[in-house]
């Protein structure tokens, strides 16, 4: 119980701070995050530019705030897409079994054989780099992992007698699936979703690094990190600032996920 509170407090504080930053950025940033000023390149932090400026003279603090909106938005949307596709596939193949499971399983295993980022690259090459393209590509790339996890827990839950009891009551298969099977997949899915959130933020930065991320000049934490690399020696803060925010955000999401999983478990909630 004590650990749960601590998870909730720390995770909540970190995510709250990051979210507040993003919400604030929608209304106000110190400077225009995309306006370049080549006479003020790579300035150190000062009263004027709190975190200095980047290689194009853009204000780092403003870009971090604007980046929070993009990065969090892309990550959240991607995770939702991956969950939606993955849960649907996982439920179908775990609950229906038979040839549905065989076919979906074979496709799923084939997709799982590719590293997620490679799959996303391939998909992006077809869709073309754009915000929605990235969400769709990464979402599809990570859906097989979700499907695997969901299928596994459905397979074990469907053998429990309360599922048979639900059938004996005359409940339809759909109702049984949604009322008695789906809720039990929540714990592993929440844990997976929070780590997915982290992977997606990192994958997005890797894609940006390859020029396939959210197209410039829009700021994301990933592309800020990527473009700061050549200036690591002269302006270390350029990489440290977005790096620290990514780390903070991942820690927050993971702690919050753990707390949520514990809260949803009736054994702890009662």
């Amino acid at each position: 119980m004590k650990r749960l509170r601590l998870n909730l407090v720390i995770g909540g504080t970190l995510m709250g701070a990051v979210l507040a930053l993003a919400v604030l950025a929608l209304a106000w940033t110190p400077y225009d995050p995309v306006r370049t000023n080549l006479r003020r390149r790579l300035r150190p932090p000062s009263a004027e530019y709190w975190l200095g400026t980047d290689e194009f003279g853009r204000d780092v603090a403003s870009r971090l705030m604007a980046g929070a909106v993009t990065s969090l938005g892309v990550a959240a949307a991607t995770v939702l897409v991956a969950l939606a596709i993955g849960i649907a596939i996982g439920l179908a193949s775990g609950f229906l079994r038979g040839w549905v499971d065989r076919v979906l399983g074979a496709v799923n295993d084939t997709l799982l054989a590719f590293p997620g980022i490679l799959l996303a690259l391939g998909l992006l090459a077809v869709i073309g780099p754009s915000r929605s393209g990235i969400v769709l590509a990464l979402g599809l790339a990570y859906a097989p992992t979700v499907a695997r996890v969901v299928r596994g827990s459905v397979l074990s839950i469907r053998e429990r007698e309360f599922v048979e009891a639900s059938r004996a009551l005359g409940n339809s298969e759909g109702y049984t699936l949604l009322r008695h099977v789906l809720p039990h997949t929540a714990a592993p899915v929440i844990v997976l979703a929070t780590s997915l959130f982290g992977w997606v933020i990192l994958s997005e930065s890797a894609l940006s690094f390859l020029g396939l991320g959210v197209p410039p000049p829009a700021a994301t934490w990933g592309n800020m990190l990527a473009s700061a690399r050549p200036f690591m020696a002269e302006a270390p803060l350029l990489s440290i600032a977005p790096g620290a925010l990514i780390a903070m955000c991942l820690l927050g999401v993971n702690l919050l996920g753990d707390a949520l999983r514990d809260l949803l478990d009736p054994r702890d909630g009662a």
């Binding site: 007698e161 009891a165 009551l169 005359g170 009736p266």
Partner: peptide, 28 residues
């Protein structure tokens, strides 16, 4: 289905652990 029912051997596995007892009995 409405006319027939079953009581299972293992009450640990035959009740949905995420439902309150009242809801379990009300479900039929």
């Amino acid at each position: 289905r409405l006319a027939c029912q079953i009581v299972f051997q293992d009450p640990y596995s035959s009740l949905d652990p995420r439902m309150r007892v009242r809801d379990i009995v009300a479900e039929p």
